[in-house]
Design a protein around this nucleic acid. Structure first.
Lengths: 172, 172
DNA sequence: GATAAAGCTGATCTACTTAGTCGGGAATCT
DNA sequence: AGATTCCCGACTAAGTAGATCAGCTTTATC
């Protein structure tokens, strides 16, 4: 899964809005852009999308800016992801349950549905309020307790185990 | 998360190889392409990548084709995904643990690590052998028991609840 | 040995998406 | 009025996805 720059930016912007003091104060796009290091014109586009989806509201002029349209506890990461990036999971263009691989590959459909369910189990559970508080829901935090979750898997193409290349043995 | 056509094709091809009778028989790329409805030239490219990653082996000529290099029980969906699409999760170009969002958005890092862990919990557990058998590991199958896993979420932009558009009320 | 069947490689192509930028307009506050 | 801020659509440059193609090498069969 690649998390797009847009989603990353939008999520961070939402966290900034939720963390703004006093609560509900309009925050300018440029303020967020500066504190989060986001290209400001680009951020403005994302905020406009969030406004059309009615996750934030906006006002113009001197005291203008953006603020959350609903309580941060009622906005999940999935809500933002769906506005910015579309459906959480699709199998090359199709929703997983519409996807019907033929023959012996049919069970791959269930696989993708399970993948979607796994994504939802994190993204629909974590709210903006959780992120501001820095405490994730216990079911999600449980995933992070495994130290293995924090380490990167090796690139499968680098340094094949067992047999290293020898001067004469051409893999080709 | 979008599952690329390449990954879908590669996975289905691997399932076909694992399901081939008698076990270990070379299967031609065109056979797989025909039975799975995959553009055959494109599939050949994917199979070549899988071969370079040593997940399959190949032979040319009359009795040529592809076969699995290791037991289907030892190949996970994640293995294939990493060969075809690269890392399971990255946050606009960075591995989640290298990603360091500033200030108040810092906890979004843990979020993405949790997302990656959730993906791994499915993709590193399901093997090609599971898919051929049609029975997913119990932890994954548990996700599918919830009927909610099978239904699609509504598009957030379609048909806002509560207030419908009225002839005079311009949302702008 | 000729021939046909298969895979191998690298180049190419088109359409789409991503990640931005830009200009001008409209609302709002001082 | 003037400064500030958001609003909107157009534009662009680069990269990726999803193929397609030509020409080559390897291998088995006649």
């Amino acid at each position: 899964m690649r998390v797009s720059a847009s989603l990353d930016y939008a999520l961070r912007a939402m966290v900034e809005l939720a963390a703004a003091e006093p609560a509900g104060r309009p925050v300018k796009a440029d303020e967020i852009a500066a504190s989060q290091g986001i290209p400001s014109r680009f951020l403005a586009q994302l905020l406009a999308e969030l406004r059309r989806a009615e996750l934030v509201r906006s006002g113009r002029g001197y005291a203008g800016g953006y603020w959350l349209a609903v309580s941060p506890a009622d906005i999940t990461v999935a809500d933002i992801a769906r506005v910015i990036d579309g459906p959480l999971a699709d199998v090359h263009g199709l929703s997983p349950e519409l996807f019907g691989p033929p023959g012996v590959a049919a069970p791959t459909r269930e696989l993708w549905i399970a993948v979607r369910a796994a994504l939802r189990s994190v993204m629909e559970k974590v709210t903006i309020a959780d992120l501001v508080a820095g405490t994730l829901p216990s079911a999600v935090a449980a995933l992070l307790n495994d130290p293995d979750a924090w380490i990167r898997r090796p690139d499968p193409l680098a340094a094949q185990p067992g047999q290293q290349d020898q001067p004469g043995s051409n893999r080709r």
